[in-house]
Structure formats: C-alpha cells, structure tokens
C-alpha cells in the first residue's frame, strides 16, 4: 500500500466502510465506548495492518453522532481531556441493518468477478 494509487483506492473504499464498522463495533459492545477504545479495538482486529488510520475514525464518530445514529456523553478523565463515550441509537441500529445488507450484496457482487479461488 505504499504507492499512491493503492492508498487512494483504499481511502475511497473506506469512505463508507468506516461508518459501517464503527456502527457494528458499537452495536456489539455491551458498554459505551470512547474514541481511543474503539481505535484500539480496530487496531487489534487489524492485526497490526492498518486498513485505516485511527485518527480518521474520530470525525466519522462525530458525523454519525450528528446524524443521530449515535448518542454521546462526556466523562472527565485523568489522563487527558474529557472522554466522549458513544452508544448506538435505535435509528443507528436500523441504519446498520440496512448498511449490512448493502455491504453483503456489494461483496457478493464484487466477488463474483474477482474472487476466483481462495487466496493464492
């Protein structure tokens, strides 16, 4: 992913995917999460390979929150500025279901053309 065309492709792909992944993480989480926790969950799931930079999730969290898909509350913290904890809303859940279906359809469609075998 060093060349800029690869980077740009990844960035274009991530546009909508980041929102989908964030909604999914918050939907599966039992408790409210703040930005750093979410970033670290992504990083561990990534196995060190960064599909997207952790810094890019924060503006998406704010955007989802502004669209009422997430709610947030602020809790003071000792280690830095107060943390903003996010939780998915009912509207967020229905949007997530819709997006998940779109993603599954998209993946099937794309795989039909490019996924000839199981990796090699």
């Amino acid at each position: 992913m060093d060349d800029s065309s690869g980077k740009k492709f990844q960035k274009d792909l991530n546009g909508g995917l980041v929102g989908l992944v964030l909604l999914a993480i918050l939907e599966q989480s039992a408790e409210d999460l703040y930005g750093y926790e979410i970033a670290k969950r992504l990083a561990t799931a990534n196995d060190g390979i960064s599909i997207f930079k952790e810094g890019t999730i924060y503006p998406v969290l704010r955007a989802l929150s502004a669209a009422n898909l997430l709610t947030s509350r602020i809790v003071p913290s000792y280690s830095g500025p107060a943390r903003r904890y996010y939780r998915i809303t009912d509207q967020g859940r229905s949007v997530l279901a819709e997006w998940t279906a779109i993603w599954a359809g998209t993946r099937r469609f794309v795989d039909r053309f490019i996924a000839t075998g199981h990796s090699s």
């Binding site: 703040y34 930005g35 750093y36 970033a39 952790e54 810094g55 924060y58 503006p59 704010r62 913290s77 280690s79 830095g80 500025p81 943390r83 903003r84």
Partner: peptide
Amino acid sequence: QDALYDAEEYLRAEVA
C-alpha cells in the same frame, strides 16, 4: 478544536 481535542485524547491515552 474538535480535531485537536480528539487527537489530544488519543495521544494522551496512548502515552498513558
């Protein structure tokens, strides 16, 4: 301000 705030939260948590 938001961007700086988010970055500060992340960086301080990472350092801690």
